[in-house]
Design a protein around this nucleic acid. Structure first.
Lengths: 135, 135
DNA sequence: CAAGAACCTTAGAACCATTCTAAGTTATTG
DNA sequence: CAATAACTTAGAATGGTTCTAAGGTTCTTG
């Protein structure tokens, strides 16, 4: 038995996505190992050199599908590009403005009190906290 | 005397910007009346019909300059477009994801406790809270 | 107030991230 | 294993934003 790599075939199927070779390859890069932040370009660059290179169009498609399926979270902190975060649990972000780096921090220890009620006719979707820092 | 409109000539000059007709016209649209959120396109559409129409390129230039001068704050909440907020004081945002609307709320009553320390070698720039809601 | 210099505006081209198109390929189902 | 539905892809298209370079405006200084 190979033994040590999660079966992305089944998790993709569970998410309602066909486990194609490209999606499995991307899932491996994304979800094997700890949490990560990628952009479409950075992920494409990373996967381009592997035995299963994936086109940029598919990288975009896949990131959007994974996001829609709840496997990724899209993070928008700066104009012009989207980040995708493999951590989909409750957490917030440091954004290092001077070099475009993004870091998670858990929301456990953070308390936000006194938020106003959502506008009439809307329901809460999520609260994002972005701590912007510079070097 | 005309009497009732602030002198944008002096505030622009104070911000280190030549008070050109275009910049004064945009300042009027932006800063006369209460706080607003605009995009480059929405501001251009608004000013296009006036006695001092301004090109789209200049709208972009001016928004960037006003932002750099601290007269506007850029708000990035969704991929693909930037909002500019005439409220540069401490406050946070509701973002209505279903229709792209942005609303301010004061930060006075909001308390954020337990934020982790900024990463080594960085200093805090700003803390943004974005309350995402849907209709 | 004239004249030069510095700065600004603009149309259109260019750019860059992202999405679309259409044709070929692959996974699934029976 | 054939039919079908879903997927991938190169390249074109899109949309927001920035750049270019040519002409106009504002400022400074005497």
């Amino acid at each position: 038995m190979t033994g040590n790599s999660p079966d992305f075939t089944v998790s993709l199927r569970a998410a309602g996505l066909r486990p194609t070779r490209q999606r499995v390859a991307l899932a491996r890069v994304l979800f094997e190992g700890g949490h990560r932040h990628v952009t479409a370009e950075s992920l494409h660059a990373e996967v381009k050199a592997t035995p299963m290179p994936v086109s940029l169009a598919t990288v975009y498609n896949t990131l959007n599908q994974f996001r829609d399926a709840g496997l990724l979270r899209e993070v928008v902190v700066a104009p012009g590009r989207s980040y995708f975060d493999t951590n989909t649990g409750h957490h917030h972000h440091f954004f290092v403005e001077t070099d475009g780096e993004l870091h998670d921090f858990p929301s456990d220890e953070v308390t936000i009190a006194g938020l106003p009620a959502p506008p009439e006719g809307t329901r809460l979707s999520r609260v994002d906290v972005i701590v912007r820092v510079r070097r």
